[in-house]
Design a protein around this nucleic acid. Structure first.
Lengths: 337, 337
DNA sequence: CTGAAAGCGCTTACAG
DNA sequence: CTGAAAGCGCTTACAG
């Protein structure tokens, strides 16, 4: 593999000149630049990011922290981040926090402190106040997705509003006996979304003068299989809710499958509404609150890159929470009572 | 952020000793090691991977190349790779090839040559002979998933056999009018799996003395939505197949939805079989050939790590193809004609 | 067992 | 515009 010395020798210049010729803003004569570029191309030279990183303190590598890459929501978010990063020539280093329970702190310590990333995007994992201030102090910007924190740039949807809107859609159709399948069973002290959605659900119900029926609030783990079992139990015994609000489309789909296995008709006998905008929900006619995870990833990456660019203004660096629009998509799984 | 010098000063030793004390095999006295470790912990010191990488030539970072991280199959594979890598303290840098069409070569050039990765795992993207020999020549091992190549370690399922088995399952149930929804429409000169599955399908059919009906071979793109449209057209006009074999579970699900929208009953009127082992197929009673993508990722990562370890034997380094078992899972979407 | 020194591959003031 | 030199943060022979 050709190094900078090889290129310098081939072009008959110093390594300093090679470096300048190959850097966008570098001051070199046009002829020298051309000579260097020719040599570099011929030798297939690309600057080692280790050498460059050590010299400049920048690696052009962004750390992305997600609970689990093989879950739909996170894979969509990372997809959105990846598009944006790759467009600008940044690398993406992926960390899964759920793989080692309780190791969140170590991830910061072992990975971030190793200085191989210029910045980090934390998805769903709520950064601590101290992490955020540490990042600020070492000039490593960070952006959070799915939560908000004083002093940190974050992007996310309004979980309270989404749950409220979903529930109101159901109450607007005349439903009062509504169950809520919450994502609460997931390992998640940090997932504030769980609580916000529960409040949104309860408040929307209260607005119609109805209270939450505790036995109709069940906790599941965002997967089809588990939700299906839970909802099957819910619909199969005693008094039945007329509608079910699920914290994810996958869980709602589990519910639809459970209902039809019990001989109930989705829509006629029981309405379902989810949250996500999963392509499968579209295929199955599921009413949902779509929250565009890929878009959240894109926005977060753009925000981060902006704060990383040398021309970033104070405005770009001001921490704040960017709200991503979610929208109610009415399909055939919900109907007037 | 504390550097090695800070630790050296705090422990009253040289940086060389700090380095040795913190390296597993380093020769230092027990008391010195303890003193250094205490200082390092107190200062929150972690060796910079840039410095260490430059000095050792190893970064403990593996490049993982996938077409698109937000597709189910790839997110599962990457999940399997991530578990294994993280367990051993390796980082994972993710590259999406589909984001820049025709840039496959650049990925090698710009990323791999930058030497920030010790090795690479290429998923579905068939490495060229020259890439493989380049990697060998620079001592960077590579493992491929989903294809095989002379001189390269690869892991994958037997696509021909899977298609053959799926089709034989259908013919064994008496079906002869069988459609094949192929993944062929995807950008994929490299995806040899498409051709192999088409051959497996044709051969299994031929064994019953039946020929392929060309108008029943349709190309889709592995998504639910597209397959649904294609299969809807297929089932809605003219003579209908009695069974449909799909290259992915998601496409088969699209087919099941298309069928029921047309008023056809899955199983009674038309059987469906897919390939993958997607959790959704399980929920919907889809018969499938399960291929454990997470497992493929795990095996690939283990193979790579083995060849990276200093104690690796010649045996570990021998390139070869590891076949991952796939298995027929019969559920309710297929039935005897 | 430990330290001084060289070197990994770059970039960037500093001179000229 | 260009080069020599220092330095980024480590590791590892080489001596002792």
């Amino acid at each position: 593999m050709a190094g900078i010395k090889d290129v310098a020798a081939a072009a008959g210049v110093s390594t300093a000149t090679v470096s300048r010729a190959l850097t966008p803003g570098g001051r070199v004569s046009a002829t020298t630049r051309e000579r260097v570029e020719t040599a570099a191309t011929r030798l297939g030279y690309v600057a080692s990011s280790l050498g460059a990183g050590l010299a400049t303190g920048r690696t052009r590598n962004i750390g992305v922290i997600v609970p689990l890459i093989d879950r739909w929501f996170y894979s969509q978010v990372v997809g959105g981040i990846a598009v944006t990063l790759q467009d600008l020539g940044y690398d993406l280093t992926l960390y899964n926090t759920a793989l080692k329970a309780g190791q969140d702190e170590r991830i910061f310590h072992d990975y971030l402190y190793r200085r191989q990333v210029d910045a980090v995007i934390s998805v769903s994992m709520q950064l601590k106040e101290q992490d955020a201030s540490f990042l600020r102090s070492v000039g490593r910007p960070a952006v959070g997705i799915g939560f908000s924190l004083e002093g940190l740039s974050t992007v996310g949807v309004d979980d309270y509003a989404m749950a409220h809107q979903a529930t109101t859609h159901l109450t607007g159709l005349g439903h009062r006996d509504i169950a809520h399948v919450s994502g609460g069973r997931v390992v998640a002290e940090n997932y504030s979304l769980i609580g916000q959605r529960q409040r949104g659900f309860a408040d929307a119900l209260a607005e119609t003068g109805t209270g939450v029926n505790a036995s109709w609030v069940v906790e599941s783990d965002f997967t089809i299989a588990d939700a299906r079992a839970k909802i099957s139990a819910l619909l199969g015994s005693g008094r039945r809710p007329t509608a079910v609000f699920c914290d994810s489309d996958e869980m709602a789909i589990g519910g639809m499958l459970a209902a039809s296995q019990l001989g109930l008709r989705v829509q006629e006998d029981v309405s379902f509404i989810g949250i996500d905008g999963h392509e499968l929900g579209e295929a199955m006619g599921l009413t949902t609150i779509s929250q565009a995870p890929g878009e959240q990833g894109r926005i977060a990456a753009q925000t981060l890159l902006r704060s990383l660019s040398p021309e970033s203004t104070a405005d770009d660096l001001r921490a704040g929470h960017q709200l991503v629009e979610s929208s109610l998509v009415v399909r055939s799984s919900t109907r007037r009572l």
